[in-house]
């Protein structure tokens, strides 16, 4: 189970998720509000930079298209941040058009803390370090801002099909 630190134990009573635009506008959902949105089921392949893949995994979560619907922004970049301090950056367009979810269930079961629960970002077309466990928010930015691994050698984008593991790959 990959983890950059102590596993955060976040109860659904205190969990919340926010989207903050480049102008400082904030949208926030608590656990009940998130689960009241349209929860989609998706089956995707996962690719970890440590060279394993897991095929046909089934998740349930809320599409970022739903969460970002109506948000006024001209930002091109996003940074996801997690309980525990982890961050990861990606272009905003990689969160849209059915490519990313705030996942709340895996294989029909609630996400355990070890798997990033209560909720994690799921961006399966990029290496798994982009799918931030214990996600608590996404900031939309005009300028790119490298995250926890992207600032210390790992590739800024992380496309598994182009094997973008490290800087310069």
């Amino acid at each position: 189970m990959l983890s950059a630190g102590p596993t955060p134990q976040i109860s659904t009573e205190v969990w919340n998720f926010s989207v903050t635009t480049e102008t400082g506008e904030v949208r926030r959902w608590n656990w009940a509000e998130l689960n009241a949105l349209s929860v989609e089921r998706t089956t995707v392949d996962l690719h970890c930079v440590t060279k394993w893949s897991k095929l046909a995994t089934t998740w349930e979560g809320v599409s970022l298209d739903t969460l970002l619907d109506g948000v006024e922004t001209s930002a091109e970049y996003a940074v996801a941040s997690s309980y525990g301090g982890y961050t990861t950056n990606l272009p905003l367009e990689d969160l849209l058009d059915g490519k990313a979810w705030i996942a709340v269930r895996y294989d029909g079961e609630p996400l355990t803390p070890e798997h990033g629960g209560p909720a994690r970002l799921l961006v399966p077309h990029l290496y798994l370090w982009k799918s931030a466990k214990w996600v608590r928010g996404i900031r939309l930015l005009n300028d790119d801002e490298p995250g926890f691994w992207e600032s210390v050698g790992y590739h800024n984008y992380g496309d598994p099909w182009r094997e973008q593991r490290y800087w310069g790959d």
Partner: peptide, 23 residues
């Protein structure tokens, strides 16, 4: 158990160093 080594302070658990080894 991560894409690199992460060392944290035994007092506050903040990151004190990160080491990534590539080819």
């Amino acid at each position: 158990q991560a894409p690199g080594l992460i060392a944290r302070c035994p007092g506050c658990e903040e990151v004190v160093f990160r080491l990534v080894r590539g080819p």
